[in-house]
Structures are given as C-alpha cells and as structure tokens.
C-alpha cells in the first residue's frame, strides 16, 4: 500500500475524471469527505435517476434518431464497501446477457475509488453477508489514516493505470498496523445477523402471515428503494418536446401501485402488503436463486430513511425463526 496525502490523492484522481466525493447526503462535486455513510448510494453514477437514451428529431417529413452515449469521465471517491457491493449486484443484472449498452458505457467511464469503512452506524449489518468494512473493492481502495493521509492501493487494471503509483512512498509498518487495528474495531461494532434461508421455500414464505405481519408498517412510498444501492428498477418513457421525442429511462419503484399494474387493468400486487413483501422476497429469495447472492448489502439505508420506522432486520429475523420453527 502507498501512503498519500488526501489532498494530493484527490488531485491526482481529478486527472482521470471529475471527482465526486462522499458527503453526508450523496456523492457530490463540492463538499467535504464525510465521516459517515451517505444518505444516498452512488448507484446513480451507473443508473441515473433520469437518463435520455435516444432522441427522435422531427425534421419536416423526416425523422432522425440520435442515440445518447454517456461520455463524461467521473471518479466516485469514498464509496464504502456496502456501496461497492451494491454496484456489483446491480452490475450483475445489467451486464448479464443481453448487456445494457448505456450501463456498460457508464461502467467504463467511471473510476470507483472505495474507502474501507470506519463508520459503522446502528443501522449497518454488512458483516451478515460475505464481505465487510475491510473489503477492498472497486478500482482503487484506500483507508483514511487521519484527516490528511490515506493508505491506498489499486485493485483493477483501470486502477493501476489511473495513477502513477511508483511516485508515492510505501506505507510504513506502523501505519498498516493502525489500519488493521481500526478495521478490526469497526467489524466488532457491527451487528451480524444469522441468515440461513432455504430458498426452495420461497412460495411458502411469500404466503406466510409472518411476512405479512413483519412488513405491516410499510407505507409503500419509494423512499427506501431510491436510497438502496441494489434496487435497480426503472421505467422507459417517451417524452414529447417541440421538435423532439425523448426516450428516457427513469427510476421506478416496486412499491408503487402502477409498477405492477398490467395493461389489462389487473394488478397482481394491488394489495399494499404484497408490494412490501415482494421487495423483501426479491432481495432475500429471488436474487439468491438467480444470482447466487443476496440482493441486500446490509447498508441500512432503508432503515435510516423509512418514515414509518420499518426495519428490514426485523423481517430478516422473523423469517429466520419461521425457517427454524417450521423445519426444525
């Protein structure tokens, strides 16, 4: 690992692209690197809240189709392991065949500089999954040694090429010891849940009153789905302008009534609780079945943002006891 002044690190990264850093709210161009996880995850760098895919230009009787290709190079600095894990999961979805060309372009144009986490909060439960605060993720990873210095190293080829690594001094023994110690302390402060589900019982769980009761408080707003690093649902809309029709991709949420409304007028998830149950099922049963990995990173953002005081961990526990109770 190399030891670099935070200031110089940021400056060096800015040569690769525009640097966005983790602030209290989200990842912004301005502001100070915060000492907390951000309220919003950095998923919008790969899946923007609103994105034009193509424009159809009306020219008299003719039309011309212009495809929009995201081209701006961006550096996401300070993404925490839970953010990175979330992006890994959404990437599985978008770059599975067929590949999503817009998403892919953004992956190419973004340099992810992750920070090993020292900021556990009471809503975090990342160590319940197969990674943790000391996981080295993204293109480059760093540890914040103090206000002025970071210890960092490249991970991907892209990360290796992004900086002139030889010009920086190696981290000293002592600094590395501090890092190990701090990361151990962080892990100790984290809540680890026991999640051993039998995925083949998905139907039974979805039909259970335990799940229904657990999600009762949910109001079906989209707040949690918008801050969640792994929620990736979107809608495609055509928007008319004077001489243009814009085809846009915008975020959607499985919590909304219209999300599951079918053209016939039938809505399989008309019932509010079914929508909340589905969000849980998708992350804890369907995604593991499809991608062999949970669809939740334990970042706790949904807990932080929910106006109804809903806590996904209570549902996780209650389904765990359902699993144990009914099958011994």
């Amino acid at each position: 690992m190399k030891k670099i002044k935070l200031k110089d690190f940021k400056k060096a990264l800015s040569k690769w692209g525009e640097v966005y850093i983790r602030t209290r709210d989200g990842f912004l161009k301005e502001g100070r690197l915060s000492s907390k996880k951000s309220k919003k995850s950095p998923k919008e760098f790969l899946l923007p809240r609103e994105e034009v895919l193509l424009a159809i230009h009306k020219k008299g009787a003719d039309t011309e189709v212009l495809e929009a290709h995201p081209s701006k190079k961006k550096v996401v600095m300070g993404a925490l392991p839970c953010d990175m894990k979330g992006l890994e999961l959404t990437t599985k979805n978008f770059l599975n065949s067929p590949e999503d060309p817009y998403y892919k372009k953004r992956v190419e144009n973004t340099l992810f500089v992750s920070e090993m986490c020292q900021y556990p909060s009471s809503s975090c439960f990342c160590t319940s999954f197969d990674y943790g605060p000391s996981s080295k993720m993204g293109d480059i990873t760093y540890f914040r040694l103090n206000d002025d210095n970071v210890l960092c190293e490249p991970i991907s080829e892209k990360g290796k090429k992004a900086l002139l690594w030889e010009q920086y001094p190696d981290a000293g023994e002592k600094d590395l010891e501090i890092m190990e110690k701090m990361l151990r302390e962080t892990a100790k402060r984290l809540q680890k849940l026991n999640i051993s589900y039998d995925f083949s019982r998905a139907r039974e769980v979805y039909a259970s009153s335990e799940l229904k009761d657990a999600v009762f408080s949910c109001l079906n707003c989209g707040a949690c789905t918008y801050v969640c690093p792994t929620c990736y649902c979107f809608d495609i809309r055509d928007i008319e302008r004077k001489d243009f029709v814009l085809r846009e991709r915008v975020w959607d949420s499985c919590m909304f009534f219209v999300y599951s409304l079918e053209a016939s007028g039938h809505n399989p998830r008309k019932n509010r609780s079914k929508r909340a149950e589905n969000r849980f099922m998708h992350k804890f049963f369907y995604q593991p079945l499809q991608y062999k990995e949970f669809g939740c990173t334990g970042c706790g953002r949904c807990v932080d943002v929910c106006p109804a005081g809903y806590d996904i961990r209570e549902t996780i526990r209650s389904i765990q006891s359902f699993m144990e109770g009914k099958n011994g």
Partner: peptide, 24 residues
C-alpha cells in the same frame, strides 16, 4: 425532492388507487 412520494403515501387524504402523477 426525489419524487419518492412518501408525502403522498402517508397522507390520509391521498387515497386514490391511481394518483394523477402515475397516469400515462
């Protein structure tokens, strides 16, 4: 505003099954 509609879902007066904002 992120248009998360927490303000709508929490409102007792917003009981329309399909809100005008959700109309295509």
């Amino acid at each position: 505003c992120t248009r998360c509609y927490a303000c709508r879902e929490v409102c007792p007066m917003c009981y329309c099954e399909q809100c005008f904002v959700d109309s295509y």
